[in-house]
């Protein structure tokens, strides 16, 4: 696992250009939403609501980094590894296949965390957000379980993407924007209606964001009517999601490997 995490942890930070592309640019889209909220809610009596909504956007923008990493670096990874010729070397190594995916996930989480933390800190500072954190341990638990569930989903997609070959890129593009909407990256997801929010809960980012927002901007504050469940319930569902996604990832990878050995093309370059 350590071996496969290494390229992301070390290699990913070797080119300083990431600071611009992965921290400054995301702040621009966050700023757009922040200014919309500020422009529409100019009444000083609604300052708490504006603070909460701006906070929602910054947290959503922070989590965006993880979703993009899951989509483009985790789910598409096996396909990319195949194209550069790594996959068949991985497949013939005497290691657990889950360790391989786990290494990618841990490396991806670490690499993206550095970007996400910069976005969060700069966002909170630049937009003057006031956080009211009641239970930091629960926040950490929700954050990490959300990441495990999210990357578990990415691990599952990794094998499925390989089956679809080059069309994996289409799938990623297809999922990117709708998930931004359905998971409520820039607004409280309950605003879409309870049924839509419940349906979108299958994506770990939805519940994770909802729980983090509740925990960082006090339950019962602005936007409370839009919350889906309590943070504790959401943590429980996320835990179950994490286990289910990891289990499915293991199953789909075993299926993929078996199919590759039978068909002889899935792990081979340019096929």
């Amino acid at each position: 696992m350590l071996g496969r995490a290494y390229p992301r942890v070390v290699g990913g930070n070797r080119e300083p250009s990431w600071i611009f592309f992965e921290t400054i640019l995301p702040l621009l889209s966050i700023a757009a939403y922040v200014f919309i909220y500020k422009a529409f809610l100019t009444d000083p009596s609604r300052a708490a609501t504006v603070n909460a909504l701006v906070g929602y956007v910054v947290i959503g923008g922070t989590m965006t980094a993880f979703w993009l990493n899951v989509l483009w670096s985790m789910a598409s990874q096996l396909y990319w590894e195949k194209e550069v010729g790594n996959l068949q070397l991985y497949m013939m190594a005497p290691m657990s296949r889950m360790a391989l995916l786990g290494g990618m996930a841990v490396g991806g989480m670490f690499m993206t965390s550095t970007r996400a933390i910069v976005t969060l800190v700069v966002g909170v500072y630049v937009f003057g957000i006031v956080l009211s954190v009641a239970n930091p341990l629960l926040i950490l638990a929700v954050f990490f379980v959300t990441l495990i569930a999210l990357y578990g989903m990415g691990m599952m997609f990794a094998s499925l993407y390989l089956l679809y070959g080059r069309e994996a890129w289409n799938l990623s593009a297809l999922m990117e924007e709708p998930i931004f909407l359905l998971s409520g990256f820039y607004f409280p997801v309950g605003a879409l209606g309870r049924m839509v929010a419940l349906g979108a809960s299958i994506i770990p980012a939805t519940l994770g964001l909802d729980a983090l927002r509740q925990l960082m901007f006090s339950i019962g504050g602005a936007g409370a009517q839009f919350y889906i469940f309590s943070p504790e319930v959401e943590l429980g569902i996320l835990l179950i999601s994490a286990v289910v996604f990891l289990f499915l990832a293991k199953g789909s990878l075993a299926y993929l490997e078996n199919l590759a050995k039978k068909e002889g093309r899935l792990t081979t370059r340019h096929q």
């Binding site: 350590l2 496969r4 390229p7 550069v84």
Partner: peptide, 28 residues
Amino acid sequence: SMVSGGETSGYGLLTTRENIWMFSQFYG
């Protein structure tokens, strides 16, 4: 172990030594 001609395995951002070390880790 297997080596093929014209192989392009590994990661371009890693150094030669790091790349080989990474693969050795897959063998424990």
